[in-house]
Simulated assay, not measured.
Amino acid sequence: MLVDDHEIMRDGLREVLQRAGDYEVVGQAGDGAEAVRVAQSLRPDVIIMDVMMPLKNGIDACREITEVLPDTKVLMLTAASEEDAVIEAVAAGATGYLEKYSGKEKLLRTVRDVAEGEHRIPAT
């Protein structure tokens, strides 16, 4: 599942994942509040979610999602690389944290690792 307030970002992520051939994008959301509702309905294996979004930020949405769907893995994908954001994401239940400027191969590798239950958090 993809969560980002920029449609073009969601479209690009979906394209990268579909071209890899290993992934199926089952749903999308444009803000944190919608992400919680859609995740509860679809119960995705992995959610790739932006941190900064309207209505509810990604960290708050991650916290809510992981409380009700403990088997769903959340990969925070964001332009924010501040140490505090990483710490907050991990505390909220994120399994991974990746900066948006990372390349496609790193994204795909990180999604695969997170789906397998490995934690992928940058050193803080």
Score class of each variant (00 low, 15 high):
L98Y: 15
A80R: 07
E24Y: 01
M9R: 06
V86W: 02
G96L: 05
D71F: 01
R43K: 14
L77T: 02
V25Q: 06
L2H: 07
S81W: 08
V38H: 05
E82R: 14
M76E: 00
E24S: 12
R120Q: 13
T78I: 06
R14A: 11
I65A: 08
M76L: 14
V46G: 05
D22S: 12
L55K: 04
V90A: 03
T78G: 14
G12T: 06
P122T: 07
A115L: 05
G117P: 04
V86R: 05
E118Y: 11
Q18W: 07
Q40G: 15
V51M: 09
L69Q: 02
I8Y: 03
E99D: 10
R19E: 14
S102G: 10
L55R: 05
A29Q: 03
I87Q: 08
V86A: 02
E24D: 14
V16H: 02
A33P: 00
D60V: 00
Y23M: 10
P70S: 01
A115K: 13
A89T: 08
T95S: 11
D113M: 14
A33S: 02
Y23T: 13
E105L: 12
Q28K: 05
Y101A: 13
V46S: 08
V26Y: 07
A89S: 15
T124V: 15
D113C: 10
R14I: 04
E34R: 02
V68A: 06
G21L: 06
I65N: 07
G103L: 05
E99P: 05
I87F: 02
G27C: 04
P70Y: 01
E88D: 15
M52D: 09
G103A: 06
D22C: 09
D45S: 11
T110N: 10
D4K: 00
C62H: 09
I59T: 02
T124G: 11
E105C: 07
V74M: 03
I8A: 13
R109G: 12
Q28E: 15
M52Y: 03
R109Q: 13
N57I: 00
E67L: 08
A123L: 10
E116P: 04
E15S: 11
E15K: 08
A80D: 08
A91G: 03
L69A: 06
R109P: 08
I59Q: 10
L42Y: 08
K56W: 03
D4N: 03
G32H: 00
D60F: 04
E105Q: 10
E24Q: 12
L55E: 14
E67W: 03
R10P: 12
D60W: 05
C62V: 04
M49N: 06
D11S: 12
L42W: 11
R109F: 15
G30A: 11
D50E: 13
E116F: 11
T124W: 12
E105I: 13
L69G: 02
E7I: 12
A91D: 09
Y101C: 09
P54F: 08
A123M: 10
T110I: 07
G93Q: 02
E83N: 14
D11H: 09
